[in-house]
């Protein structure tokens, strides 16, 4: 699918921290580092998978890209244009190009708006089309996400839809402006497996039809494998490994990626044995970690080397790199 390797989106040494508020009796407020010098390039027309556990900072990456949040340090470029400083009309233009699909379809639709109102809202905001064409475009978009005939749905309200249907409405809302990049933040984690598969296939169709670039954020390596061209694995705000999807899954180099693959429950019962065994049986107790973020759980790690130094990204060929001394 990716015919040219032109980067549409570039993240440059992004650093983001959150302040936790100290509880009344509990500890004082302290900074939690959500993203630690993340650099990424997303190519035009690809589905880029960002895989990580909860709290790894993967959602933060998505929120930074759609400008729901601001990083402390670093730059983000869309087609060579710096986006963090955009204001006013320029920001509005940017909003047309970058959209987001949220995790929870039960929360991401306004309960007071009908499907028609919700999906057509972006058109109204950006003053595209007149009353007649707006409804026309909306109908088309609604049926393109598999809600057909659209007449059955446009007058319904979120509470009259199932979870899968709601997520389709949310996708239609994100797609109606024909954006160039769509950030999909765990779009199926609240849905059943059979419904998830429907959503995955819709995303694939969308890419096929209009060559949209996707950033697909997920906790599931299997889903990432199914959808993505390239995958980046993120752990505690640090990029661990990045490369082509099949390469990451079948030839993972970072011990963390290996541990993830080992831990994934498999349907194929014959191969349920652990293959890499890169996870330590007992976690190391580390006071202040100055080294690799995975040091305390890593079986491969070396006390002095990994405990003291942060491993840099290492090129392993074929656009595959990993942040590990032993990769």
């Amino acid at each position: 699918m990716v015919n040219n390797s032109e980067a549409i989106l570039k993240l440059h040494y992004i650093f983001k921290k959150y302040k936790t508020r100290g509880t009344f009796f509990g500890p004082q407020s302290k900074d939690v580092i959500a993203l630690n010098s993340i650099s990424l390039k997303i190519l035009k027309g690809e589905i880029f998978g960002l895989v990580g556990e909860s709290g790894s900072g993967k959602t933060t990456v998505g929120r930074l890209i759609v400008k729901l949040e601001k990083p402390e340090k670093g730059e983000i470029y869309l087609d060579g244009q710096e986006i963090l400083s955009l204001r006013g009309d320029q920001l509005k233009g940017f909003r047309r190009r970058v959209q987001m699909i949220f995790q929870d379809p039960y929360q991401s639709l306004n309960p007071q708006l009908s499907v028609l109102d919700a999906v057509s809202e972006p058109l109204i905001i950006h003053k595209i089309g007149n009353n007649h064409t707006i409804e026309e475009i909306t109908r088309k978009t609604i049926s393109s996400v598999g809600l057909s005939p659209p007449d059955d749905f446009i007058n319904r309200y979120p509470h009259q839809l199932s979870g899968g249907q709601r997520q389709r409405v949310a996708i239609a809302r994100a797609m109606i402006l024909k954006p160039e990049i769509v950030v999909a933040d765990e779009p199926t984690s609240m849905l059943d497996a059979s419904i998830s598969a429907q959503i995955f296939n819709i995303l694939l169709q969308m890419r096929e039809a209009s060559n949209i670039t996707f950033l697909f954020i997920t906790h599931s390596l299997a889903a990432a494998r199914y959808l993505c061209d390239r995958i980046a694995v993120i752990y505690k705000g640090n990029l661990m490994e990045i490369g082509p999807a099949e390469e990451i899954l079948h030839n993972p180099k970072h011990p963390y990626t290996q541990a993830l693959i080992d831990a994934l429950p498999k349907l194929d019962l014959s191969s349920s044995k652990k293959y890499y065994n890169s996870l330590r049986k007992e976690e190391r107790i580390v006071k202040e970690n100055a080294g690799c973020p995975f040091f305390s759980r890593c079986n491969v790690s070396d006390e002095t080397k990994c405990g003291q130094n942060i491993p840099p990204m290492k090129e392993l060929g074929k656009s595959h790199s990993a942040a590990c001394f032993y990769a």
């Binding site: 759609v66 400008k67 729901l68 920001l91 509005k92 909003r95 047309r96 970058v98 959209q99 987001m100 949220f102 995790q103 929870d104 929360q107 991401s108 639709l109 306004n110 309960p111 007071q112 708006l113 809202e121 972006p122 905001i125 950006h126 949310a170 809302r173 402006l177």
Partner: peptide, 24 residues
């Protein structure tokens, strides 16, 4: 998230207040 979705769609503050918050 539905307010954030409106923001991502480019809605102005006034629009968010009147269209999304007020009815709720």
């Amino acid at each position: 998230p539905f307010i954030e979705a409106a923001r991502v769609a480019g809605a102005s503050h006034l629009r968010i207040i009147f269209r999304h918050i007020m009815p709720n």
